[in-house]
Amino acid sequence: MAAAAAADDARRKTACVTGGNGYIASALVKMLLENGYAVKTTVRNPDDMEKNSHLKDLQALGPLEVLRADLDEEGSFDEAVAGCDYAFLVAAPVNLNAENPEKELIEPAVRGTLNVMRSCVRAGTVKRVVLTSSAAAVSSRPLPGHGHVLDEESWSDVEFLRASKSGAWAYPVSKVLLEKAACEFAKENGVSLVTICPVVTVGAAPAIKATTSVPAVLSLLSGDKAMAGILEVTERASGSIPMVHVADLCRAEIFLAEKESSASGRYICGSLNTNAAELCRFLAAKYPQYNVKADWASGLPEKPRACISSAKLVGEGFQFGYKTLDEIYDDVVDYGRALGILPY
């Protein structure tokens, strides 16, 4: 039995997922384990069970090693990526209220990404690096009028964002700059790199605390005005409220990792484009018990002004499992109830 188990472990593909206590990373760790991978994941403090207890639960699914690493510490990811076939770079600074965004968010994001990539080069076993960026690196730019279709050739306008300093401007800037720095590093060092740019990501995940995206898409049901404001800002900044289920995002990450030879460059990952007006009508009809305010979206466009397209990803053969608001909200409402964001 022991020999058989050892042989089974030897055949397993091994993946590293950075930032395992995060929302997306926790879902990715779970899916990799369910797909038969051995997984190493990193957190800043493995002993902090308040943030990491879900990782202990996930160890029941398969071989999962939780290691300490910090984006700001050069070489701290060496052990985590050693011997891995694939490295999924999910961890990134998200300090949206920084007093000095350039020093506290943008520079650490670039520095941390390159830190992990240098560890991947030293490991010598990593066949493919999958960098999780954001559609914020695609759509944060002036979009006058209607009918825009944004794809992988579209980049958020760093000069415009730095000049306007509107809202959480530093976040899209950080994503653009870390993507470009990673791409340049990959070319110089022979690293096989793909970047995935997820849109607003929702749905159930193992992480104990949901990120901003989940309470935001539930805000019209919960009545949380601050979170509803994030939806409005998203639409005004990008021309729509695009969504993807976290399970589809994780499947896309693994899909792109395993297509080592044919996949390249950036991939947008989003299954639908909606907006505030459409959401209001849909949620009021589907969940009358939550008394959605029908006039919440007054003053906003009736239809999305832009479409963030995943045609490249679909063209590679990927299929989304959650394609409609019905399918997405059936899951995220249950998750919101379980987390206490919504009453039953």
Rank of each mutant, 00 (worst) to 15 (best):
R12E: 08
R12A: 11
A15D: 01
G22D: 08
Y23A: 03
L28G: 01
L28N: 05
V29M: 04
K40A: 12
E50L: 09
N52E: 01
D57R: 11
L61P: 03
V66G: 00
E73W: 12
E74N: 05
G75F: 09
D78E: 07
G83M: 15
E102R: 14
E102G: 09
P108Q: 15
V121W: 03
A123I: 02
R128C: 11
T132A: 09
T132L: 15
S133V: 09
S134Q: 05
V138R: 00
G145H: 02
H148G: 10
L150H: 08
W155K: 02
E159V: 04
L161V: 01
S166N: 14
V176C: 07
A182Y: 03
E188Y: 00
A204V: 12
P206L: 13
K209H: 13
K225A: 14
A226L: 13
A226K: 14
E232P: 04
S240I: 11
S240G: 02
M243V: 03
I254M: 14
E258P: 09
E260S: 10
N275C: 13
A276T: 11
L279S: 13
V292Y: 12
L300C: 04
K303A: 12
I308P: 09
K312A: 10
G315N: 11
E316G: 03
E316C: 09
G317F: 12
G321R: 08
Y322P: 06
T324K: 12
D326R: 13
Y335C: 07
G340Q: 02
Y344A: 15
